[in-house]
Computed example of a mutant assay.
Amino acid sequence: MVKTAIVTGASRGIGREIAKRLATDGFSVVVNYSANAAQADEAIGEIQATGGNAIAVKANISKENEVEQLFEHTITMLGAIDVVVHSAGIMPLSPIIDNDVQLFDNTIATNLRGTFLVLAQAAKHITDGGRIIALSSSVIAKSFPSYGAYIASKAGVEGLVRVLANELRGRNVTVNAVAPGPIATELFLQGKTQEQIEQLSKLAPIERLGEPLDIARVVSFLAGPDGGWVNAQVLRANGGFA
């Protein structure tokens, strides 16, 4: 029987690569997106071109009713949910001293509230023996200036993951986080100078930026049979960045 995976934020970047990898692993994949239907269709096309099965479902993960509909639609269309990968997120930057409350609220609404909503629905609907994976960030360990709101939101994600793992005791469901280091995505590169990008690429001993596929491989491990004994953990996939 074909298993089903939901990947939020799967129309681009890390989320798209995760969706493609899970499709290669044999999952029917739900490509969640919030706004850009064309990008979601591109992701579907890439998956189908390699023989995979995928559908696109629009949902803003910061809105409770839309997250509920995402899960309900998945069950209606595909019958069950075996893996949930929560990849959707934003990374606006601003120094704390600037007191940009709107930026802070938007970041928390998307990254932390969104994670809470997705994890709640995942816990409710995932099959026994399923896997729940949320994306955090290795930048938590660096405390870079201007990353205050983002780091606060991702620290919260890691807390939620560990609590949910304990709450799902007895169902053989694992709940983990993957914390990427700097990854060469549009989200990461936006607003950075070439000099900043080069500096960041040298921070890890491997001396390169990560690629979305680096993270997709880690998620594939956690979602697959070899990851079944890993639970309530944060895997820092960052090339030694932190």
Results as ranks from 00 to 15, higher is better:
Pro182Tyr: 09
Pro182Leu: 02
Pro182Val: 10
Pro182Arg: 05
Pro182Cys: 07
Pro182Met: 07
Pro182Asn: 07
Pro182Ser: 13
Ile183Tyr: 04
Ile183Thr: 15
Ile183Gln: 06
Ala184Glu: 14
Ala184Leu: 06
Ala184Asn: 13
Ala184Thr: 04
Ala184Gln: 12
Ala184Lys: 14
Thr185Leu: 03
Thr185Gln: 03
Glu186Met: 00
Glu186Asp: 14
Glu186Arg: 05
Glu186Val: 08
Leu187Gly: 04
Leu187Thr: 13
Leu187Met: 14
Phe188Pro: 04
Phe188Trp: 09
Leu189Ala: 12
Leu189Gln: 11
Leu189Asn: 11
Gln190Cys: 05
Gln190Thr: 14
Gln190Met: 11
Gln190Gly: 05
Gly191Ala: 09
Gly191Val: 11
Gly191Thr: 09
Gly191Gln: 10
Lys192Asn: 07
Lys192Leu: 15
Lys192Trp: 02
Thr193Ser: 15
Thr193Leu: 09
Thr193Asp: 10
Gln194Lys: 12
Gln194Arg: 11
Gln194Met: 10
Gln194Val: 05
Gln194Phe: 03
Glu195Tyr: 01
Glu195Ile: 11
Glu195Arg: 09
Glu195Cys: 02
Glu195Gln: 15
Glu195His: 05
Gln196Ser: 10
Gln196Trp: 01
Gln196Phe: 01
Ile197Ser: 04
Ile197Thr: 10
Glu198Asn: 12
Glu198Thr: 12
Gln199Pro: 02
Gln199Ala: 14
Leu200Trp: 10
Leu200Cys: 00
Leu200Tyr: 10
Leu200His: 06
Leu200Lys: 07
Ser201Asp: 06
Ser201Tyr: 04
Lys202Glu: 13
Lys202Arg: 15
Lys202Ile: 01
Lys202Ala: 14
Lys202Phe: 00
Leu203Pro: 01
Leu203Arg: 12
Leu203Trp: 04
Leu203Phe: 09
Ala204Gly: 12
Ala204Trp: 02
Pro205Met: 03
Pro205Tyr: 05
Ile206Met: 13
Ile206Arg: 06
Ile206Gln: 12
Ile206Ser: 06
Glu207Val: 05
Glu207Gly: 06
Glu207Ser: 13
Glu207Cys: 08
Arg208Leu: 10
Leu209Lys: 01
Leu209Asp: 09
Leu209Gln: 03
Gly210Asp: 02
Gly210Ala: 02
Gly210Gln: 00
Glu211Ser: 13
Glu211Gln: 15
Glu211Trp: 12
Glu211Phe: 13
Leu213Arg: 13
Leu213Ser: 13
Leu213Ile: 14
Leu213His: 10
Leu213Met: 11
Leu213Ala: 12
Leu213Thr: 13
Asp214Arg: 01
Asp214Thr: 07
Ile215Asp: 04
Ile215Tyr: 00
Ile215Asn: 01
Ala216Phe: 08
Ala216Tyr: 10
Arg217Lys: 15
Arg217Trp: 06
Arg217Glu: 15
Arg217Met: 12
Val218Lys: 00
Val218Gly: 00
Val218Asp: 00
Val219Met: 02
Val219Arg: 01
Val219Cys: 05
Val219Ser: 02
Val219Lys: 03
Val219Ile: 13
Ser220Lys: 00
Ser220Asn: 12
Ser220Ala: 15
Ser220Cys: 00
Ser220Thr: 03
Phe221Lys: 03
Phe221Gln: 07
Phe221Ala: 08
Leu222Ser: 08
Leu222His: 09
Leu222Ala: 07
Leu222Lys: 05
